[in-house]
């Protein structure tokens, strides 16, 4: 599934990375806890989170995440956007809650991080 398809499915706004929407996403994982993302995340993950400070972007960079989708309409702060631009990590924001975001992506065939089949 491409990032563009994900954007349309979640009716998400692209905050940065408009030119990277052709990126292919193979699996996703959702958590507001960066410690969990560091423990269970894998390179290439699409990170779904409600944590909107700069640590979400730093964490995504550390684990080589492909992009971040902020849920519940969260918007990253200026520091986070600046970092994401430097690091080339696309940031999207959807008004959907975490549960609905995961459910929509999963039901359209995007597996979870623990089962990247």
């Amino acid at each position: 599934m491409t990032l563009k398809e994900i954007k349309e499915l979640l009716q998400a706004e692209v905050i940065t990375g408009e030119d990277s929407l052709d990126k292919e996403i193979m699996f996703a994982g959702g958590s507001d806890l960066m410690s969990d993302v560091l423990a269970f995340g894998k390179p290439g993950i699409l990170l779904l989170t409600g944590l909107s400070n700069a640590q979400s972007v730093r964490t995504a960079n550390i684990i080589d995440a492909k992009a971040i989708v902020y849920v519940r309409g969260k918007q990253p702060d200026e520091a986070g956007i600046k970092l994401a631009k430097e690091m080339g990590i696309p940031l999207l924001s959807t008004k959907l809650m975490m549960y609905a975001t995961c459910g929509l992506l999963f039901s359209h065939g995007l597996p979870g991080v623990s089962d990247p089949s």
């Binding site: 960066m34 410690s35 560091l38």
Partner: peptide, 8 residues
Amino acid sequence: EMGFGAGM
């Protein structure tokens, strides 16, 4: 609030 401190 920073997303840390979960004892992990």
